[in-house]
Amino acid sequence: MVTTEKRAAPLQRTLREYRSELAMLGVFLLFFLIMSFISPYFFTRQNLMNVMSQVSSNAMLAIGMTIVIITSGIDLSVGGNLGLSGMIGCMVLMNTQNIFLGVMAMLLVSSVVGLVNGFLIGYLKMPAFIATLGIMQVCRSLDYVISNANTASKFPEAYGFLGKGKIADSFPIYIIFIIFMFCVFIWILSKWKFGRFLYAIGSNAEAARLSGVNVKLNTLLAYVCSGLLCGFAAWMMTSRLMACDPTYGSGNEMDAIAAAVIGGVSMSGGKGKLAGTAIGVLLVGFLRNALNILGVNPFWQGSVIGAVIIVAVLAEKLSALQLKK
């Protein structure tokens, strides 16, 4: 009665599972190759490092964004959260000259912002878009209130270790840190019960509840993760620039969403992988860089990034349709 056919080979299964991520990787590599031929400057150590440092904070935000989008939510407050937590942390740092206290303040504030988001969305059932839109405005405004629109600086020299430090004087620590964070969250999303529950909630919250998942708590935790990652982003950014300006982070939520969406994360939730988001982050970063190198008027950048988002999602939709037929 049961016909359990032979299972597909593990490699084949992996290929199928990561179909869209691999396709994106292919596109990215192709783009990279073409650019390397067009411009001698593109594939230089200097340029690569430049781009990596530009995308470093977006990488953190995009991880958090991916997590909340998987629960079929959205976090518009990531940019504001980066600004606020960065500013508070840096002011603590400036006034105490204690790196530990400064970083702790940064991470604490960002987690609390995430907690507020999570509480509004998970427990009070507010639409994520509205709740985080409100919190974004609040963060932005508090950022200016606290700093009085002044830049914080004069940090202890050692604070630069995350943003500027290098291993063996050549390999930047922040790149290792980004890779480490991606690995941690990939592990959480695929191997932790918590991670699996996030997919379940995004796919069908009511079914998850009826299966015994604590939907409220897990949703809250997803936003806390996103908030915490804003704190890390703020840390990386301020440590690289050795200063904190109240404008930091403004508009960054859009790049984070773009990276996730280009990486194949579905806005309707329950679908998407951080590996895809990583490629999305790189693609957005290197695309901007390529346009600069090619001397394209910077006003055009938005059009190009926008077109890439639309094409990426369209390609995904079309291939899904193809599979159905």
Binding site: F197, A200, G212, V213
Partner: peptide
Amino acid sequence: KFDGLFQELSVSFNIAITDLII
């Protein structure tokens, strides 16, 4: 459709969720 299944997730996950919880 609306209260029972995680439509786009795997059969294995759909079955395993209760076991994960307990």
